[in-house]
Design a protein around this nucleic acid. Structure first.
Length: 332
DNA sequence: TGCATTTGACCGTA
DNA sequence: TACGGTCAAATGCA
């Protein structure tokens, strides 16, 4: 009985954390987007009023939102570190450790990393290909005159594709071995215009990229986390925003966002199963999330209450203990 | 010598 | 079963 309840509690906490992290990510993206727009609109004013140093109220607000998410996640971590098995994202990056490509090939080779020099044949079976193919999640397709961008990519394959003139090249983030960054991209010349490349970005950068400082503010890589709660239109619209931003960076002539909601729904379905060992449903999660908003570190209190999808909020306050009880009450 | 690229084999998915 | 994605040994290059 108690163990079931505990499992259920952990399951819900975990889901809440996921939602918090996601919210954090969305807020980050909003910040990036706004800063991008503001930099265009305000650049002249900034030049004129250089040295004024007054913070942008939008940035200020976003900073508060992000801070709240971060604190909330951190506090939850102290409640149940197991539940917060996902890393708290750095600004502009979020590692989708939730599910789809968690089966890292590195672990497959973990045992033989010492004697990596093996003959190709004979040893191959059971070793090579010991990986889980990534789902085509978080993909966006762009066309550009150059497939280079601000990131460091390492080519790991090239393949002739059926009914295409040019081979497809496969790139992964250079930081994959060191930081486990899972961003990859596929590059293929366009049939109709060989000077153009069709670039398919898969996933997003999770590398902190100390040596590529722009990574943290790269909008395209703070990729939208699509989930089953989102409509295709929402997801597509968000991807358009990101893709458009990259368009400016990369001389991209056109943007085609490929929606992979189907894949995501499948993934999330699995994830939901994995996370939801108890009887909680997505509806429960939604309810929990709607009731947990932010943590005020000045008052050491959570802002709790209802939030609608419109703009009306009804907040109450609880302290840490109440918050913990609040969780438990959902699992009773 | 170390890192990046090439290339054929292997495996998962449709 | 075909195709596409990934692995990893071989090779190239600075």
């Amino acid at each position: 009985m108690d163990s079931n309840s505990n499992n259920n509690t952990k399951s819900i906490k975990r889901k809440v954390v996921d939602q918090l992290v996601e919210g954090y990510e969305f807020a980050t993206q909003l910040q990036l987007l706004l800063s991008h727009q503001h930099s265009n609109h305000l650049i002249d004013q900034t030049r004129l009023v250089s040295g004024s140093g007054s913070p942008d109220p939008v940035d200020e607000l976003l900073a508060k939102i992000l801070g709240s998410f971060h604190k909330t996640i951190s506090v939850l971590d102290t409640f149940d570190p197991v539940a917060v098995s996902v890393p708290i994202p750095v600004e502009g990056s979020w590692n989708a450790s939730c599910g789809d490509d968690s089966a890292a090939p590195a672990s497959c080779n973990g045992g033989d990393s010492g004697d990596s020099k093996k003959k190709r044949l004979g040893v191959g079976k059971g070793k090579r290909g010991c990986y889980t193919r990534k789902k085509r999640s978080h993909t966006r397709v762009v066309e550009a005159r150059s497939f280079e961008d601000r990131y460091a990519w390492r080519k790991y394959g090239q393949k002739e594709i059926l009914n295409t003139t040019f081979p497809r090249s496969y790139f992964r983030c250079t930081h994959k071995p060191t930081q486990g960054c899972k961003a990859t991209k596929l590059v293929q010349k366009l049939e109709q215009d060989p000077e153009m490349f069709q670039i398919t970005y898969i996933g997003y950068h999770t590398c902190t990229a100390n040596d590529q400082t722009q990574a943290k503010v790269e909008p395209i890589d703070s990729e939208i986390m699509m989930d089953s709660d989102k409509t295709v239109a929402e997801t597509t619209a968000q991807n358009h925003v990101n893709a458009k931003i990259q368009e400016q960076d990369n001389n991209i002539s056109s943007v085609t966002v490929v929606s992979t909601v189907k894949e995501e729904e499948k993934n999330n379905g699995d994830l939901s199963k994995e996370y939801c060992e108890g009887s909680s449903t997505d509806g429960d999660l939604s309810l929990v999330w709607q009731d947990i908003m932010m943590f005020d570190d000045h008052q050491n209190q959570y802002y709790c209450g209802e939030i609608s999808t419109t703009t009306s909020h009804h907040f109450g306050f609880v302290d840490n203990d109440q918050f913990s009880s609040f969780f438990d009450s959902y699992c009773a």
